[in-house]
Design a protein around this nucleic acid. Structure first.
Length: 190
DNA sequence: AACGAAGTCAACCGCTAATTT
DNA sequence: GAAATTAGCGGTTGACTTCGT
């Protein structure tokens, strides 16, 4: 099996095969196309680079803002976030987050807002343990927060938020309003 | 100019979920 | 219903590029 960077010739073979047979059955594709690549590699190459309408680079301020907001809402659900940014891939969003946005957030965390400063008040002194009294079960929300710096939603966000509307996502004002309302609830991830 | 450090990003890996047999 | 196969996801790696000294 070939590994590493794809060549232009391999891209051509993959594109031609998918044009004929469609983007599915990746294992079969990798064998029948003659590409000496594993199916997973073929799938990734198609999804991230070869499929139509892929946008590359130059993430706009509006897109960046939307990524920040969606990340605040959804956490590291890159595929879900990328699905709201036409032409962008989960891999690109993830890379952009790790190399650009996470730094921005770290910088902004070093300059806490007033509300954040209020949260930095020292915690109350620990209560002495009470004998023969079992500790209360931890609140459920605490358990779910421990999975990440965001709440685990037990509903389908696709049902909750209809993102099916095409066009300029900045026009979805109520989403922006909703996300702004979250500002006090969600801490930015580290 | 040369070198090492830091940054970027394409590709891979391991895992789970969904689908097919 | 069980097993096998396929698809998809997020985390991580490593090659390459850029920057600073």
């Amino acid at each position: 099996m070939n590994r590493g960077a794809w060549t232009a010739e391999e891209d051509k073979i993959l594109s031609q095969y998918i044009k004929l047979h469609g983007p599915r059955r990746w294992k079969t594709l990798s064998i029948q196309s003659g590409l000496n690549r594993c199916g997973k590699s073929c799938r990734l190459r198609w999804l991230n680079y070869l499929r139509p309408n892929i946008k590359r680079g130059n993430i706009s301020e509006a897109e960046e803002d939307l990524i920040l907001r969606l990340h605040k809402l959804l956490g590291n659900r890159w595929a879900l976030i990328a699905g709201r940014l036409p032409g962008r891939t989960d891999n690109e969003i993830k890379n952009y987050w790790n190399s650009h946005l996470s730094k921005k957030i770290n910088q902004s965390q070093h300059q806490p807002s007033l509300s954040q400063q209020q949260q930095l008040q020292p915690p109350p002194p620990p209560q002495p343990p009470q004998e023969n009294v079992p500790p209360p079960p931890p609140p459920k929300i605490q358990e779910e927060e421990s999975k990440g710096n965001y709440f685990e939603f037990n509903f389908d966000t696709n049902e909750f938020i209809d993102f099916s509307a095409e066009g300029n996502f900045c026009e979805i004002d109520w989403v922006n309003t909703f996300l702004e309302l979250d500002d006090e609830l969600y801490e930015l991830p580290c």
